[in-house]
């Protein structure tokens, strides 16, 4: 989809297991009561979201869009184990409450007191792309500023299941993390990057079909593969690992390289286990030139 109105990515933040340990969480999530009850995944997601909202009071935000491919696996596992171990009686509701997919979005809303549109997308390797797509729709509908982000976590159980499914035999590195973006209808400084369009495909594609997909997408902008720089998500995933919403992390890394690249446009390409594919077209802004 080509964006019909100008859309800008004005801020980005990522939190992974390593940075979660290093950061001063209490300075980012400034409600000790809420923070204490958050599990690791929720902490990663809420921290990344709050970092994007640092300079903002609750008034200026029009939507909170979140995405996760698998949600709170740790809490889901905990609650499932309790059901068996305690024979369905006297269960602690906390893991159940935290296992709900929209927890991160609603915790951000609670922390900031933001009473706006909230949406949570849970569509496998295209979860984050759905949230980004909604962000573009929001701006087209006249909204000024929306928060969009994604998060997923590794758990020991999920690791074993991936191993049994043979994913690591094919060279996949396991990953997790949260990445959030503040998206607006106007640039907010020299770090702002234009978001020109996004498109997705479901199902496997071979190399020539991937090229065709990119060519079709770019032709909508009067561009072709020779006129844009290409940012291959697979490169980032070598370090951050693979997970359903890794494309959010890829986008964050791509944003950092937009202004250094020779072309005006940067095409960000993602594939998730060759089950789904996405293309995001970024454009340098005047402010950043």
């Amino acid at each position: 989809m080509k964006t019909v109105v100008p859309v800008y990515i004005n801020m980005a933040a990522s939190v992974d297991a390593a940075s979660l340990k290093e950061m001063n969480l209490a300075s980012v999530i400034r409600n000790p009561n809420l923070l204490r009850r958050m599990c690791r995944l929720v902490r990663m997601g809420v921290a990344a979201g709050m970092m994007c909202l640092e300079d903002m009071d609750g008034e200026g935000l029009d939507a909170i869009l979140t995405a996760t491919s698998l949600g709170g696996l740790e809490d889901t596992g905990k609650f499932l184990a309790e059901i068996t171990e305690r024979s369905e009686s006297g269960l602690n509701p906390t893991p159940f409450m935290r296992s709900v997919f929209n927890t991160v979005g609603s915790q951000i809303a609670l922390l900031k007191g933001i009473k706006v549109y909230n949406m949570t997308y849970v569509h496998r390797g295209l979860s984050f792309e759905s949230a980004l797509f909604d962000a573009v729709l929001q701006i087209a509908e006249g909204k000024r500023s929306v928060l969009a982000g994604a998060f997923d976590e590794i758990t020991p159980e999920a690791h074993i299941l991936k191993e049994r499914a043979g994913l690591f035999r094919h060279g996949e590195k396991e990953g997790e993390g949260a990445s959030f973006f503040l998206i607006g209808n106007r640039p907010a400084g020299s770090r702002s990057v234009g978001l020109s369009g996004i498109d997705v495909r479901r199902g496997p594609l071979d190399e020539s079909q991937k090229k065709e997909f990119a060519g079709d997408f770019l032709s909508g902008f009067g561009l072709d593969l020779s006129s844009v720089a290409v940012f291959n998500g697979a490169r980032v995933k070598k370090s951050c690992g693979e997970y359903g919403t890794a494309s959010a992390r890829v986008l964050h890394e791509a944003l950092a390289s937009v202004h250094a690249c020779s072309s005006e446009y940067l095409l960000v390409c993602n594939s998730f286990r060759n089950m789904s594919h996405s293309l995001i077209l970024l454009k340098k802004t005047d402010a950043g030139l």
């Binding site: 698998l70 709900v100 997919f101 909230n118 949570t120 997308y121 849970v122 569509h123 496998r124 979860s127």
Partner: peptide
């Protein structure tokens, strides 16, 4: 297990070729 699996199953059975996604807000 994942929510999107049920949606993709339906999309494939019905032959939906356009935009497909899954929402979960409790």
């Amino acid at each position: 297990h994942d929510c999107g699996a049920s949606t993709d199953f339906i999309a494939d059975k019905l032959g939906i070729k356009g935009f497909v996604t899954t929402i979960s807000t409790a």
